[in-house]
Design a protein around this nucleic acid. Sequence first.
DNA 1: CTATAAATGTTTGACGACAAACTAGTTGGG
DNA 2: CCCAACTAGTTTGTCGTCAAACATTTATAG
Lengths: 158, 158
Amino acid sequence: MTQRNDRKRGLDLGFLEGLIGFRLRLAQIALFEDFERALRPFDITPTRFGALALIDANPGLSQMQLAKAIRLDRSTLVALLDHLEGRGLVLRRPSATDKRTNELSLTGEGRKLLGQLKRRVLDHEKRTFGKLSADERAQLARLLEAVSAMKTKQVIEI
Amino acid sequence: MTQRNDRKRGLDLGFLEGLIGFRLRLAQIALFEDFERALRPFDITPTRFGALALIDANPGLSQMQLAKAIRLDRSTLVALLDHLEGRGLVLRRPSATDKRTNELSLTGEGRKLLGQLKRRVLDHEKRTFGKLSADERAQLARLLEAVSAMKTKQVIEI
DNA sequence: CTATAAATGTTTGACGACAAACTAGTTGGG
DNA sequence: CCCAACTAGTTTGTCGTCAAACATTTATAG
């Protein structure tokens, strides 16, 4: 049907045109691109930043708690924490009450670096969402929250 | 400051609390989770689906055009197309006018499968965004588009 | 109390993505 | 015309992620 091959404006998105999920994916890609560039000088990825921020806000938390909070597999977190620990930013201390778990915390250097990162991230947020009004930003945050609140309740029949 | 460790409601998000980017990431994860589960029986990932849909809407397009449209590195596309071609869903035909490029198209079987996939994807969209009103969905689409329109214009000073 | 189940952190294997280097083909300025 | 710069597709290497299997510790059922 819609078979115009716009040369300038990009291709026909076809079925993808109407999918909000596709728009969400494109927004996410643009977001990460800017975020990664902003923190590249520190060798900090969005995921690493998320881990640092959550450990900072919840000192003593376990790896499982952290993994759930940033929606990462616990096995993935192992290498990530190895890295941050190796850089002297994070501490793994075996819990006294539950010998299976480690209590995570930031080192002084970790807190110091996080401070610098936060400023960069705020700049990044401003670049990415700054063209939206405060109202629109609030709207967007609300709608996104509603989407992730879906939480995989439904079943899919094959 | 805010150091309450809510046991039930999850941890303190701390600095992440106010970041729209973080909400966007969570929404994207939830989205992909449902999408992947919905199309797993067909061994089709979101990226593969995007490629199929775009080839369908723009038969004859090149790998580079496709790569740009779905924001994928051209090297990544090679293996993806190898897979789809191996399954008899996609055709790579060397262009007569420019011998560097391949003209991509769907096979009959590719179109047939895409038809089934589309229904699944629409169900998925309904699950993911169905709790939003039509107005809210339009709003969300508009705001997401504004975000990805950012397009990395700004420079970052180190 | 004890045996079984569940949870935590780790290791290993597979896969998808990007980036750099390579080959082949095309284009544009001299 | 021609050679240098660019473009398209591919190969190879690396990295981040998930999933399954494992050992250790904790929780639970009988």
